[in-house]
Structure formats: structure tokens, C-alpha cells
Design a protein around this nucleic acid. Structure first.
Lengths: 135, 135, 135, 135
DNA sequence: GTGGTCTAGACCACA
DNA sequence: GTGGTCTAGACCACA
């Protein structure tokens, strides 16, 4: 993972894990990597990983069992829920940010469409946990 | 101005001034309020206002003339340029943020359209500098 | 048994066994299941069951006879003693916890009575050791 | 503050601050001590205090302004809300804990009343921030 | 081996 | 001076 500057690392890890769940790379009930392992993989302090996991737990996205490990929640439809809420949240933030310009809906859509064209799609989203490591 | 928590105040001031210029509330060549006055109006630390003005100068949006004051740049088409660049920047950031979900263009447009419907437009955008204060 | 998250499993097992004794589901002198059996039944690490039994022994609630097995103490009045001490302990902890609010006795009783009304009683308390397994 | 063993310090600090608000020792809108000051007072690591404050902020009980400090929320009726929710929560936990004993309501009340008598009331609850320090 | 808490201390962003 | 993040590393509880 290449962390962005100016965005807390623990947030970036949290978002990445959510994304992996949303996209089905991490399945409900599946065990997550241990704090130590993930911190070693990401070359980050264990506390930073711990904080990301803690946030996920606060949101009901994963559960920890002391001594056993940490697992993705088995909540039905979790990936769908995450995917929907994440996209909607970002869309809402976007619209709020440009609201002050008082563009009408058609103009907003036109701008989005225009930028979509320029936007080079980058389809690589490597899951944090690779298939080989899942066992 | 009601400042949002967790977003630096200097950024909120800077954005507000840019918006005022983009929307024509502040015209090219017009004098800006002094750091002292604006900080008093906004009930904010003068350092904070200074930082916002400095950013605007760095971007060529305003100029300070020692002993005279600070003025909006007279660059032709400044409001249009600002408006375009601000909206495009935000759109680009938005698309980058949701890129990882690998939605196709049609879906993105549909989501935006859907949220546009829910979004309650708030047409009030009071300029930071009121007409009475312009002298 | 459905273990609660964030409460050590060994404690939950220990409490459950005490409760079974207090309620007469496990009688004084009766043999307890082996660590191996109980851990299999509960799908739990044997170390965890061992720890629960050890605590019970430390409290004089059960005794192990090498080669024979582990038995509930034959102490006279054990169930009554347990029942009383467990309820009193919890009550004391509760009162200590709310002491800082400086409520007078009447108010405390009123609050308890109010919550008692809301509290849905869950009368199912299946003993850990079923009759069939007692042999 | 004398911290209890086996209960995380950050939780004890959090609870103490909530209690101070509930009892009116800390008023809505009032500035909280800085992380550094409180950590020095309590002889605890700043990170530990930070964590307690963060929890309070997550619960909407206080707000932080970077560079300015941290303040108790000005939410109307916050002290009452906190007092009620804290007492009710503890009462509910208590009743759940003794539920397995299947005591009827009258018995529960009798036990509580009995323990109330024995309970030595300790009316000292020194606020974290002393009046002299409030300025 | 797993998660959870805590310390000592650095360094940054902001007002 | 404020809050926020992060590191390095210890030590505990639990399974």
C-alpha cells in the first residue's frame, strides 16, 4: 500500500479493509490478518493497525475474540451495505462541496460526464490479504 | 460564517473568498478587507486570516500593495477560471475517491442523479464582505 | 452456550457452573465432566475449561481426585451459599458503581423497579451438563 | 484519581469526565483541560488522556477545536441526559447479571434495600478540574 | 500466537 | 499552546 500524505494512515487502512469487504475480497466470517502480521506487511506500527481495526469494530464491521483473532462480521448483506454506503457518502460530500456554486442538476451531470471521459480508470485494487495467505 | 469542525478555519476562509470571487460578489481589482478587520468580523485569530490571504496570493488570486491594502487580481476572466477550476477539482477528487469501486460511467451518473434529488439545495451564500463594508 | 464477546470465556464457564450449582442443577458430590469432554461440548480450548475449573477449586466449590475425576464439593448448604453470595456480590458492585451519582435510597429503588418492568425475563437456563451425560 | 486495576485507565478517565458533567462540575460549553495538562495532573501518558477525550467526542459529549482546545458540548440537557443514561445502563447491566437467578421483583428490591443499608456512602467525588483551575 | 493497553517521546497542523 | 498521529517497544490477558 502506498499511503497518501496528509491522510491518517489508520484511516487509509480502515478504508482499504472496508473496500476489500465491499468488493468481496474479504468475505463475511473470514479471519482478518493479525495486528502483528498486517503491521509487518504494511510496514507500519502495530498501534496504527490496531486503531484501524478498532474503528471497524466500533462500526460493527468486524469482531475480535481475544486469543483467537479478528473476524469479518457475518451480518447478512454486509458487502452490499458497505458498498452502497461508501459510494453514497462520497457522492453526498461531493454534492455538498459544489453546492455553493449553485449549478443546476443538468450542469452537474454534464461536468461529471466530462471528467469521467478524462479519468484514466485504474482497475488495480490489490486486496490487503492475498489468496495465498488466506489459509 | 459558521465554521465546520475538523476543517481548518484558514481553508474555510480561503474557500469562501474564492467562492465570492467566482460568483462575482468580489470583483477583480476590488480591495479586500484588512486582516485586522476580517479577523474581527469573523471572530478569528488574525494569523488564521493571514494564512488564508497568503494562500490566495500564492495562487495569484490576490495581490498585496504595501501601505495600500490587498486587492483581487485584475486578471481577465478570473471569476470564470476560478469557478471552472474549483468545480473540476472537486469532481476529479470525487471520481478518484469512488474509482476503487469500479462502477461504470452510467452507474456513477445514476448515483449522482439519485443523490441530487435528495440533496436539499441551500441557496443562501452570503458574501463575506457586505456592500456597506466595501468602502 | 452462547458466549458473550468481550467477557473472558473461562469466566463465563465458571459463572455458568456456579449458577448450575446454585440452582441445584449440579448437586453437591456430583461428578463434573472432564476437561476434555466439556471443552468438546462447548467447542472451546481445553486450557479455557481448565482455567474455569481451577478457579472453582480455588474457591472450594469443587475438588479434583487424581485418577477419579472432579466433583462438586459436599459442603453443606453450598447451593444456598453460592446463590446468596453471587447475588449479594453483584448487588454490591452495582451500588458501588452508581454511588457517585449520590442518589438517595428511595430513588435507587425507584430506578430498579422501573427497569424491572422493562426487563424481559428470559427463563431459559439450560444446565451445562445434561441428565443423559451425568453417567 | 486512584485508578482501579483491571479497568483500562482511559475508560476510568472517560467515566470520571462524564460523571463530572452529569453532576454539573463541568458545565456545557466549558473548556476542558488540555491533553497535556490533564495527563500531567493524572500522571498518565498523554495518549491515554487523548483516547478518553476521543471517546467522549465520538459520543457527542465534547468537541475539539485544533489550536484552541476542547469544550463540553452545549447540547441542551446534556448533564441530565448523561446522568439518566449512566444510571439506567448500570441498572440494566445489574438486572441482566442477576437475571439467571430467577428472583422475582420483590426479592430483587429486598436485596437491594438490604445492601443499601450496609453500603457506606462515600460522598466525596472531587471533580477532575478544581474551581481554582477553571480560569 | 492473539488482541488490548500503556508509556515515552517525536513531529505535524492549527490558532 | 492546542489537538492529532505515529513510532518503538513493553507487558498483560486470553485461548
Amino acid at each position: 500500500m502506498n499511503f497518501k500524505l496528509h491522510i491518517p494512515i489508520y484511516l487509509q487502512i480502515e478504508e482499504k479493509l472496508k473496500l476489500d469487504i465491499a468488493l468481496g475480497h474479504l468475505m463475511p466470517g473470514q479471519q482478518l490478518p493479525s495486528v502483528r502480521d498486517l503491521s509487518a506487511t504494511l510496514k507500519v506500527n502495530p498501534n496504527t493497525v490496531q486503531r484501524a481495526f478498532q474503528s471497524l469494530e466500533d462500526e460493527g464491521i468486524c469482531l475480535s475474540h481475544r486469543g483467537l483473532g479478528r473476524f469479518v462480521s457475518e451480518e447478512a448483506g454486509l458487502p452490499q451495505r458497505l458498498r452502497l454506503s461508501m459510494v453514497q457518502l462520497r457522492t453526498q460530500e461531493y454534492l455538498e462541496a459544489i453546492q455553493a456554486f449553485e449549478l443546476d442538476g443538468a450542469t452537474v451531470l454534464a461536468v461529471v460526464q466530462e471528467q469521467l471521459g478524462k479519468h484514466i480508470s485504474n482497475p488495480s485494487n490489490n486486496p490487503v490479504i492475498k489468496k495465498n495467505e488466506e489459509a
